[in-house]
Amino acid sequence: MAERMGFFTDTSVCIGCKACEVACKEWNRVPDDGFVFRATSYDNTGALGANTWRHVAFIEPDRPVTGDGLDGWLMASDVCKHCTEAGCLDVCPTGALFRTEFGTVVVQADVCNGCGYCVPACPFGVIDRREGDGRAFKCTLCYDRLRGGLEPACAKACPTDSIQFGPLDELRERAEARLDRLHREGRSNARLYGEDPGDGVGGAGAFFLLLDEPEVYGLPPDPVVPTRDLPRMWRWAAAAAATLATVTTLAVLGRR
C-alpha cells in the first residue's frame, strides 16, 4: 500500500473562483448539474452530488460588512472526505466501493448496481445516485491521475493553494502550522475540521480549515460513521427476531 494521500483544504485562502469545480468536471467528464439560479449567494450548484464532486460554498455575511475585509464572505471548497471509516464503503453490498492503495475511497462504476445504499450511509451527504444513469458517483480523488503520478485536477487548478494535496500526515502538520499562524494573527475563529483520527469517522482523508462552525458550511458538526453501532443494531434485531419467533411459537402452542 502506498502512502495515504489526501487533501487539506484551507478555506481561509479560498477565493471562490470555482476553478476546482470546473477542473474536476473537465477531467472526470462529469455532467452539468442543471442551470438553476438558486439565490444562495454565488452558489448555483448547491451541494456535492453525483454531478458535482467539488463544490464551492459561499456564505453571505449576516450583518453589514465593515471595513474589515476578512471573514465577511466565506468561501469553501467541499469534497468527499475519504473517511478512514467510510459509511458508504462499509454498507456497499456489491464491493463497488473500495479502498485504494492511496487510502482513498472510490466507486467502481462497472460493479455498482445502483442499490443506493451508500447515499444515506454517508454522514456528510456526499455520494449520490445519478439520475438517469442509476449508479452512484462521487470524488475519486482522481484515482486515475494518482496512479499516473499526477496530482488531482482540482488541486492542480486551485490558484491560491487553498486545496493542498499530499501525504496525509504531512498535510496534518501543515494544517497545524497554518492554524497556529492564524491564531497568532488573532483569527481565533479558525479551526480544523476532520483532521482528528479520533473523530466519528476515524479522521477524514480530506480535511479542512474553517472560519466558522461546520454547519454554516453545510457540514455536520459531529459526523459518526453509522456502522459504529452496527453490532448493537444486529443485537436489537436479533432480539426482535427472537420475539417474533417466540410469539409465533406461543401462538401455535396455545389452545387448538
Partner: peptide, 14 residues
C-alpha cells in the same frame, strides 16, 4: 461592492 477580492483583503473600502 464587497467582492471575492474584498474577502481576502485586510480592509475593504466601499
Amino acid at each position: 461592492r464587497y467582492t471575492r477580492t474584498s474577502a481576502m483583503a485586510d480592509v475593504h473600502l466601499p
